[in-house]
Every structure is written in structure tokens, then in C-alpha cells.
Amino acid sequence: MAEFFQLLVSGLATGSIYALAAVGFTLLWQASKVINFAQGEFVMLPAFFILIGTQVLGWNFIVALLFALICTLVLLGYFFKRVIIDPMLPHGVLPIVIATIALGIVMRDSVKEFYSAEAQPFPAVFSEETVSVFGAVISVQDIAILITSLAAITLLQVFLTRTRTGRCMQATAQNRAVAEILGVNVKRMILYTFLINAALALMASVLISPIYLAKFSNGQSIGLIAFIAAIVGGFNQVRGALVGGLLIGVIDNLSAAYISAEYRTAFPLILLIIIILVRPQGLLGTAEERTV
């Protein structure tokens, strides 16, 4: 039992990080039908903005964090939208998929070439001390990551449903033309979505890098898992990504422990396929109209 609890808590902590990355997928999809295949790299890169601040420029962590926030919002939010997405949006989903894959390569190899090919240690934001609960050893860091992610996603949900700007963003996501008629500044709302996505990526990066270590190639595995989590949870719901992320984190641990370590990555994939066939809108998603 203690063992099961241990697996569950570790899985939830890892899963909450997947959830943070997955939320970005759902946000961008809702706002502008963009599938961002560079999402993993979006989570990898901000850690290096911080490292540039602390290691190269010699700043303290807080200053470096602010610097990283600005870089992330400008580069991964504003420029990503204006330079990559806007010109391609009229041509449908596919060119954007390919372009974001290419963008991922650019980000990955730029970090490798201009910063380092080596994994970099990254300061832990939370204490790595452990506490024993019901026989399971749990680190403060795990709990803190879980709570921070839950809080961030809940706040986002509240913002989207309870504030005027948030409701305008949702209206834009649901029906652009109607939102426009109702006087919503659609362009600005979409920009907000991209900025929120960038900020969430920074947050995921800060939480994940002490565990994953900052490395150019991190984005590949995170991106794929987050993508699966988003589909499983429901591509058009913020809370779907949360559930999907947590579920994948837990399933990964339980299947590795009780079924097969060699096939541990297979179980999330099987879940993905089953979900698509049985409930294509995802666990918490709402059905979209059939496009054909």
C-alpha cells in the first residue's frame, strides 16, 4: 500500500509538469487552431534564459527569472505569433505543424550550438527534503510542484470564466465571427493566449529543470508526452490537459511497476488510441462539430 501510494504521488508530481506543458497545447488550439509541435522546446528554452542570466551575466536568480520572463513573452509569445503563426494561419493546420517542428529543431540546435550540448544543473526552487507519509517517502519538491501546477491551472480557469478579458478570450475561441460582431478585440485576445502559453512554458521550465536538468534535447520527450496528455484529457479544455497530464504521469509509473518496464511508454500510447476511438473529444472535452 505504501508502495502504491509512493508511485501515485511521484506520478502525480511528474504528471503535473506534463499538465503545465499540455495546457499550452489546448490554449493555442482553442484560440487559433494551432498545433504547436515545438511545445516541448518552449518548455526547454526558458531554463536557458535563466542560466544566461545567472551563469553568463552573473545576476541573481530573481533578476534572471524576470529577464527570462521578458525573453519568453517576447520571443515565444509575441514573435512566435507574428513571425511564424500569422503568415501561415490562412493556409490551414498542416503548414503550421511542419513549421513548428522546424522551429523546434532551430531552438534545440541553437541551444546546443550556442550554449552547450551538456546537461546543466539548475537550482531547485523548492526544498528537496523528504517527509514520510503513510510509509511513502515524498519530497517537499514533489508536493510543491503539484500544488503550484494545480494552482496555476485553476487560476487560469478562473481567469477564463470569471473575468471579462477571460470570457472574451473564450468567446473568441468558440466563435471568432460572433465574438467580432459582439465587439471583442479578437486579435488582442489571440495575442493574450500566446502570451499566457509562453508564461506557462516558463513556469513549467522552472519547475521541471531541477529534475530534468536543463538540456537542449529535453523538449522532445516532454513535447510528445504533453501532446498525448492534451489529447487524452480533451484538446479543447484547459482542465482536460490537467487531467490528461496527471493520468499519464500515474499510468507511466504504475505500468512500469506492475506490468512491464520495457513497455512503460506503451501504456500512455494505448490509452491515447483507445480514447480517440471511444471518446474522440477526450475525457473532459466537449464534442466538436465534424469538419467533414
Binding site: 511564424i84 501561415m88 503548414p95 511542419i98 513549421a99 522546424a102 532551430v106 540546435d109
Partner: peptide, 9 residues
């Protein structure tokens, strides 16, 4: 990769 992005744009 940059060339691919430019081409697609």
C-alpha cells in the same frame, strides 16, 4: 530548419 519555415511562410 529556418529555410523550411521561410518556404512554408
Amino acid at each position: 530548419a529556418s529555410l523550411v519555415i521561410v518556404l512554408l511562410a
